[in-house]
């Protein structure tokens, strides 16, 4: 993510502030709070959940993931790799007649190309997912929160970044409180 002009909306904010984090005890509470944050027009914010909450993407206003496009590119690459490898090795680089069969045919090249399609798709899917998520990530301010451990266990959080244009320490805190957020804290960057 590019840091397009990191001018905080509130000049009184400490420069080291990453944003605000609010906790929620249940999935429905998080879901409804997320809808409110989305409707307030925030863009740089996130939910922390211990499991993928069904429907939360919509509540957050997220677009459909673009992982499938990367997968498709991987799959096409895999299939072409298989076909061209078998043609190049058998019909071009070292022609060897075996059993009177043709030097190249898409028929016998198909099983290997099929497997390579799947192999390359798998690598592209996982690689694409990791790149889109910015993983592996050595450090993230959210992980410094002393309660974040429960975000991998049984609690839910909403994080709103100070970089967001609509961020205002007092107003955003009030929004999170009104949405049912508990233990609202500032996160260090």
């Amino acid at each position: 993510m590019s840091t397009a002009g990191t001018t905080s909306a509130d000049p009184t904010m400490a420069a080291q502030n990453y944003g605000l984090i609010a906790a929620f005890d249940t999935a429905p509470a998080l879901y409804h709070a997320a809808e409110q944050v989305r409707d307030a027009g925030f863009r740089r914010w996130d939910c922390i959940t211990p499991f993928p909450v069904h429907g939360l993407d919509k509540a957050m206003g997220l677009k459909r993931s673009i992982v499938p496009r990367i997968s498709l590119a991987g799959g096409i690459t895999g299939f072409c790799t298989g076909m061209s490898m078998i043609w190049w090795t058998g019909a071009y680089d070292y022609k060897l007649m075996v059993g009177g069969k043709p030097l190249f045919s898409p028929m016998f090249a198909f099983p290997v190309s099929y497997e390579l399609t799947i192999l390359f798709t798998a690598f592209a899917t996982i690689g694409g997912m990791l790149v889109l998520n910015g993983l592996p990530m050595h450090y993230h301010p959210v992980l410094k929160h002393d309660q974040i451990r429960r975000g991998m266990d049984d609690r839910f959080f909403i994080v709103i970044e100070a970089r967001d244009d609509r961020f205002d320490a007092a107003k955003t805190r009030a929004l999170l409180e009104a949405a049912g957020g508990l233990d609202i804290k500032e996160l260090e960057a």
Binding site: D46, C47, I48, T49, P50, P52, V53, L56, D57, M60, L62, R64, S65, V67, P68, S71, T121, T125, I126, G128, M129, L132, N133, L135, P136, M137, H138, Y139, H140, V142, L143, I148, G151, M152
Partner: peptide, 18 residues
């Protein structure tokens, strides 16, 4: 560095499905 971010889950779920 997984942190349970829903923006991550969104891509993760799609990748898992694929």
């Amino acid at each position: 560095g997984w942190r349970g971010s829903n923006r991550h889950w969104s891509n993760y779920e799609m990748a898992y499905l694929i």
